[in-house]
């Protein structure tokens, strides 16, 4: 037993175990979120949603996953085979790293690094490369247009995302997730969402755009580009993109709850339940948006970013810096 604990003390083993745990968490969450998304859509539209597989359709995502796994892998003619298959893998792989530095509880963290925020932002930025490769590699005009949109959108929205994160970094004086959480454990009002409401809103809107969720789901705009960048993907290629989309939802919601909603802090329950609860509340809000709003237009999306969000977040950042300096 002690030997086993000693083994855990080895940072490499610890990291490996954490990675495996995170991958399991992501896979499980993917299944749950697909189910929840479909149920939320169903209830909003006043129908039962999936119902037939398992009690109340609980096993539906499993059946869908099995179907996707069992499908033939098709590569379109004249597509770039290597890029075509690299894209879904590249889209999914960074997710595991993104969740590593996020504390799910006071001690439940895969990798406690000082630049955790930066790590997450850097690795989540890889996703856009995957969409770009998918669009280019599949030799399809719709996919290409979707990829072009994805690049423009992600590049634009990373700026306000970063700027709003910076505000939080300023107030807590750290880029370490654990320390940022620790600074918010003094009751509800110490949460950053109350000290930085504008930054939170900007972060959430940018996160919606970064994860390509409606109303900013332009890269896969169904009614314009049929399916956008993943038009040509079927089977597990599509499955991985799908899983990646839901995983990124978890990543951004986890980051949002750590940065703004106090992370694992909360009374009565243990930290990880609070953390999960906050993540799911944000994800539910994202789903609620998706099933309520129409899609914005591409230029409106960029206008919103460049003309509103970036100036606003810059002003917010400067105000934060000023106030912090004055208080000091």
């Amino acid at each position: 037993m002690t030997q086993l604990l000693q083994l855990f003390a080895n940072p490499l083993v610890y990291l490996l175990v954490a990675l495996i745990a995170i991958l399991t968490f992501i896979a499980l969450n993917g299944l749950i979120l697909v189910y929840v998304e479909r149920k939320v859509a169903g209830f909003i539209q006043r129908r039962p949603g999936p119902f037939e597989v398992g009690p109340h359709g609980l096993l539906q995502p499993l059946a869908d996953a099995l179907k996707l796994v069992g499908k033939q892998l098709v590569v379109p003619r004249d597509a770039d085979r290597i890029l075509f298959w690299a894209a879904p893998l590249l889209s999914f792989a960074p997710v595991a790293v993104c969740l590593l530095p996020i504390p799910f509880g006071p001690h439940l963290v895969g990798l406690n690094v000082n630049l955790g925020v930066l790590l997450v932002l850097a690795f989540s930025g890889l996703n856009v490369l995957a969409l770009c490769l998918a669009g280019w590699g599949s030799n399809n005009k719709y996919a290409l247009l979707g990829a072009a949109r994805a690049v423009a959108q992600s590049v634009a929205y990373e700026i306000p995302l970063l700027l709003s994160v910076l505000c939080v970094a300023f107030t807590s004086g750290s880029l370490n997730f654990a320390e940022i959480t620790a600074s918010q454990t003094h009751g509800l009002l110490s949460w950053n969402v109350f000290t930085q409401p504008v930054a939170f809103l900007i972060f959430f809107v940018s996160a919606l755009a970064e994860t390509n969720r409606a109303p900013f789901d332009l890269p896969e705009a169904e009614s314009e580009l049929t399916a956008g960048f993943h038009t040509e993907y079927s089977g597990m290629g599509f499955g991985l993109f799908f899983l990646a989309e839901y995983s990124y939802m978890i990543v951004v919601c986890a980051v949002a709850s750590v940065l703004f909603l106090g992370g694992w802090s909360g009374p009565f329950l243990s930290g990880h339940w609070w953390m999960l609860g906050k993540i799911y509340a944000l994800i539910l809000a994202m789903m609620w948006f998706r099933w309520t709003y129409p899609r914005v237009r591409f230029d409106q999306l960029l206008n919103l970013c460049w003309k509103w969000l970036i100036p606003l977040s810059l002003i917010n950042l400067m105000a934060t810096a000023l106030i912090i300096n004055l208080v000091r």
């Binding site: 539209q45 129908r47 609620w288």
Partner: peptide, 21 residues
């Protein structure tokens, strides 16, 4: 108007199904 829209769907969310099962 965005909040009003959310209110509408939120209300419908709480109502029972209307489809014939």
């Amino acid at each position: 108007s965005l909040i009003v829209g959310l209110k509408v769907t939120g209300k419908e969310f709480c109502k029972p199904w209307i489809t014939v099962h």
